[in-house]
């Protein structure tokens, strides 16, 4: 079995998360070749074949040309699986390659199942086993679902070229907004999620954080809604944290949030939905109305 792993380069760097693709290939017991639109001076620790295109020439986000580069490689390698991370790069690019190859794509793979793959559904509350029809099969892997594996060695580089006009014009990156809140050093974080109900309830969550001597965190929906500033956001598009104690208040546990906090030392979740996916990572799940429980807990701490 043969996998073609599609690596991602961001701001000139080979991303460490690319090593999860090797972890997946290892789980399949497959041989691997890798495609990288990146830099000659930042190559993966991998002794196999590396198809390398120059990011200075083809850009870090240029889906039409990256698609062509991958298709040229598929032609040579004839892989069984073409594997991406389920990231802003992978979910953007994989369907383009799948459409060109008339091949099946399975998104956000979390596991390997008999004759197919496990995919999450319904906001991580449920799973599906899906069987692809035909080959090759394109897969995007959920971040953290497969172990990081650094094979080691120096790759055998095969230069990769293509020609053509890009369909979109990458203008540049906008740096992340400077964070005046550094959650990564906090020992205790108390985070507010949509389950708190309304913006007027944020101070009650902040009061618990203060009573514990911790910082206020937030999930994406309350930041998008303007209830809490983005500097407090925990998750893949916010900050990744690992405090000694993490208290999730009314947070259902979308994968993007879990990825940002699941390495916390001790996790308490307060949620009225006993089946919420946050329960999968929580050491203690308090099944309660968050706006009844949190003020009661804060009051008790004050005594």
């Amino acid at each position: 079995m043969k996998t073609l792993l599609i690596a991602e380069c961001r701001e000139g760097k080979f991303l460490d998360t690319n090593y999860e693709l090797f972890g997946f290939a290892d789980k399949l017991g497959a041989t691997s070749a890798m495609v990288l639109v990146g830099r000659q001076d930042d190559l993966p620790a991998f002794a196999g074949k590396l198809y390398l295109a120059d990011a200075a020439k083809f850009g870090e986000y240029n889906p039409d040309l990256h698609k062509k580069l991958i298709l040229a490689t598929v032609d040579q390698e004839k892989p069984d699986y073409i594997v991406f991370g389920h990231t802003s790069y992978g979910w953007d690019l994989a369907p383009r390659v799948a459409a060109a190859l008339k091949a099946p794509q399975l998104s956000e793979v979390v596991g390997v199942a008999d004759g197919g793959f496990e995919l999450p559904s319904c906001n991580m509350k449920m799973r599906r086993t899906v069987k692809p029809q035909g080959t090759p099969v394109l897969l995007t892997l959920q971040g953290g679902a497969f172990p990081v594996l650094k094979p080691g060695g120096t790759p055998q580089v095969v230069p990769l070229e293509t020609a053509g006009e890009p369909g979109v014009n990458f203008l540049g990156y906008e740096p992340a907004v400077a964070k005046d809140v550094n959650l990564s050093k906090a020992e205790i974080i108390v985070s507010a999620g949509r389950g708190i109900g309304k913006p007027e309830n944020v101070p009650a969550i902040a009061a618990l954080a203060k009573a514990l001597g911790g910082e206020l965190g937030a999930s994406r929906p309350v930041v998008d809604g303007g209830w809490v500033d983005h500097a407090h956001q925990v998750g893949t598009t916010g900050q990744t944290v690992s405090p000694k104690l993490y208290i999730a208040c009314g947070i259902s546990g979308a994968i993007q949030h879990l990825a940002g906090m699941k390495k916390s030392g001790f996790i308490v979740a307060i949620n009225k939905d006993k089946d919420a996916p946050i329960g999968e990572v929580a050491d203690v799940l308090v099944v309660a109305d968050v706006m009844q429980f949190v003020p009661a807990l804060t009051a008790k701490l004050g005594k």
Binding site: P104, P120, M124, M126, V130, K131, Q133, G279, A282, L285
Partner: peptide, 26 residues
């Protein structure tokens, strides 16, 4: 190009404590 073979709830992580009931007790 792909077919769902089964749909199911993921296995629960064991070890987590679930607290239910009266808020003051919780």
């Amino acid at each position: 190009r792909s077919v769902t073979a089964s749909f199911y709830a993921p296995p629960k992580k064991s070890g987590g404590i679930v607290l239910e009931g009266d808020v003051a007790v919780q």
